[in-house]
Write a protein that binds this DNA or RNA. Structure first.
Length: 343
DNA sequence: TGGGAAAACCGCCAGG
DNA sequence: AACCTGGCGGTTTTCC
């Protein structure tokens, strides 16, 4: 039984958030052996819809699609006006009929305007969180999460947080393994964690999931320099090693040791750029058992050596540094394919 | 760079 | 019945 998704298109919207839903929930992945969705883009009225960027979007489907949908997605839209009575009613009916109702970015204003967020917790783009709370006092706005679910109503924060929410829906419907395959194919992290947060404007707590594993991850992030083995990690959250491995992979898509390796390499980047500590000292500071181990995993993940990385990204090379020529690559964070197991 | 020891990982399965 | 846990044995990965 395939899962049906209806995505709302509107006049004057930015295309990005709508595209997130189409990309994740609309692509046919059956050639890859993955389950998917029946997705339709629908509009309140027929006719061309002008989008940001000066192009038009057109669809033959109307709001009656909401009645057949298991999931209704409302992408970013107007933050000032109210939804029409027809749209508001269709959204309420869909929720009452048991459909998941999902907003991306400022789409939360539309849900709020339809009354669907009254008394419920909601997320939205951080620039508009205050406005949402002011316009809709009955909505419990949470400005610090990537997304939140409240009585079958899902709201996500700014722009790219919609990716996290859509992947969560896939995880809910088809399991973590399938969601991770989706993420890998899109080349995005299957799971945003503390290590990713440093690349974000401000750290964002997680939306939901395994609380014990999340707490463990937060603690690991603060203690990367310490020797950490499976037994210590398992003891920390009072489970067996077997259960830790299983639940860690369920929550993050990777294993504890692989995650640690990737986080330690990520932590080493700042030290390589911002200090003149020798590679041996950097290796020890971020918790590698030896410089050889550090170099091995750094090269595997970053496709260059620590010294070459430092020479490229820490400014001009020092006068006494050896002048070996090496292939140089731009800085990047570890890819999900490296965080996750290959199979 | 090689290879053996140790750790991490995971399928399987029994038990709660 | 559906779900989670954790021990066992074998394979893979890491360590030195």
């Amino acid at each position: 039984v395939s899962h049906r998704v209806a995505v709302l298109a509107r006049e004057g919207s930015a295309p990005f958030e709508l595209s997130i839903a189409v990309e994740i929930l609309g692509l046919d992945r059956t050639p890859s052996g993955l389950p998917g969705y029946d997705l339709v883009v629908c509009a309140e009225q027929p006719g061309p819809l002008r989008q940001t960027g000066g192009f038009t979007l057109q669809t033959d489907h109307g709001l009656e699609e909401f009645r057949h949908a298991d999931t209704v997605v409302v992408p970013a839209g107007d933050t000032r006006g109210d939804p029409s009575p027809a749209l508001a009613g269709a959204l309420r009916d869909a929720h009452a009929a048991g459909a998941r109702v999902v907003s991306l970015c400022t789409g939360s204003f539309t849900l709020a305007g339809a009354g669907l967020l009254d008394g419920r917790e909601a997320a939205t783009h951080w620039m508009y969180a205050d406005l949402l709370a002011a316009r809709f006092p009955r909505v419990r706005v949470n400005p610090d999460v990537l997304w939140v679910e409240s009585d079958g109503v899902f709201t996500s924060a700014g722009s790219a947080a919609g990716i996290d929410l859509c992947l969560h829906l896939v995880r809910t419907d088809y399991g973590a393994a399938v969601a991770n395959s989706y993420a890998r194919r899109m080349v995005v992290p299957p799971y945003r964690d503390g290590g990713q947060a440093q690349f974000i404007e401000r750290p964002m707590p997680l939306g939901a999931g395994d609380a014990a594993v999340h707490e463990l991850i937060a603690w690991l992030g603060e203690n990367l320099h310490r020797p950490l083995d499976l037994a210590a990690m398992a003891a920390r959250i009072h489970v067996s090693e077997r259960t830790l491995i299983r639940r860690f992979r369920e929550a993050t898509g990777t294993s504890p040791a692989q995650w640690l390796l990737a986080q330690r390499v990520a932590a080493s980047l700042a030290m390589l750029e911002g200090s003149r500590e020798p590679v041996e000292a950097v290796a020890a500071a971020v918790g590698f058992p030896s410089a050889a181990s550090f170099r091995h995993h750094f090269a595997r993940i970053m496709r260059t050596s620590p010294t070459a990385y430092r020479r490229t990204f820490a400014g001009a090379p020092g006068p006494d540094e050896p002048g070996r020529m090496r292939e140089l690559r731009p800085r990047r964070a570890p890819e999900p394919s490296e965080l996750a197991q290959a199979g």
